[in-house]
Computed example of a mutant assay.
Amino acid sequence: MKEVWVFNGAGGRFPSAVFEGRAEAQDWITKNALTGVLTKYPVGISVYEWAQENGQFSVTKVQRTSSAFIQNFSSAAQEHDHFENGIAQ
């Protein structure tokens, strides 16, 4: 499955960068001394569906199928790194 690495800066509402590779993302974060989270996302499938397909999440309540729930869904099972001032924590 194709994947990308997305950086969300601390306090930001939207991603500030998307990279094809983790190393290039980490280099950019370090070079700019950024604070935030770098997360691997699957391409062509929502995280909601990806988490279900990979056994990371199951729909057990009706409210978990609502638009509001799906559009805000994220998964701690996604590979991710936290950075503070460009340094991985």
Rank of each mutant, 00 (worst) to 15 (best):
N85H: 08
E24Q: 15
Q78L: 13
Q63W: 14
G11N: 04
K2F: 12
Q63D: 15
Q63T: 08
S46F: 07
S74E: 13
I45V: 11
R13F: 12
T35R: 02
E84Q: 10
V4W: 06
L34V: 03
G9M: 06
N32H: 10
A17P: 01
E79W: 10
E53Y: 06
K61I: 11
W5S: 00
D27A: 13
S66Q: 08
S75K: 03
Q26I: 12
N32Y: 05
A68Q: 15
V47D: 04
A33I: 03
N32E: 12
G55C: 03
P42E: 05
V6F: 06
F83C: 00
E79H: 07
A51R: 00
K2D: 14
A51P: 00
T35D: 03
N85T: 08
Q26E: 14
W50F: 07
V62E: 15
T60G: 14
E49G: 00
A25N: 01
A17W: 11
A17M: 13
A23G: 07
V4Q: 10
F69K: 01
R64E: 15
E20T: 09
A10T: 04
T39W: 01
A17G: 13
Q89C: 12
S75C: 15
R22V: 09
S75F: 01
S16F: 12
N72Y: 05
S46I: 02
M1A: 05
P15Q: 04
K61C: 12
S46R: 10
S46W: 03
D81W: 14
T60P: 04
S58R: 13
V43F: 05
S74Y: 11
D81T: 06
E3D: 09
I87K: 13
E24A: 12
F73N: 01
A76D: 06
E20Y: 13
G36N: 05
F57M: 05
N72H: 10
S66A: 07
T65L: 12
T60R: 12
I45R: 06
R64N: 14
S58Y: 09
Q52V: 10
E84A: 11
G36Y: 05
V6W: 02
S75P: 05
G86Y: 01
E53I: 06
T30E: 14
I45Q: 04
W50Q: 00
L38W: 03
G12L: 11
G36P: 00
F57A: 05
N32V: 09
W28S: 06
T60D: 15
F14T: 05
W28D: 04
S16V: 11
V47E: 02
V62F: 14
A10W: 06
G9W: 01
L38E: 01
G36W: 06
H82L: 13
L38V: 03
A88V: 12
G55H: 07
A76W: 09
V18K: 04
G11I: 01
H80A: 09
D27P: 00
K2V: 08
I87Q: 15
S67Q: 13
A10E: 15
N54I: 03
T60V: 08
V6Y: 04
R13A: 12
A25T: 03
T65F: 03
T35K: 03
T39R: 02
S75N: 07
R64M: 13
E84S: 12
K2P: 11
T35C: 04
V4F: 10
I70D: 03
E79V: 08
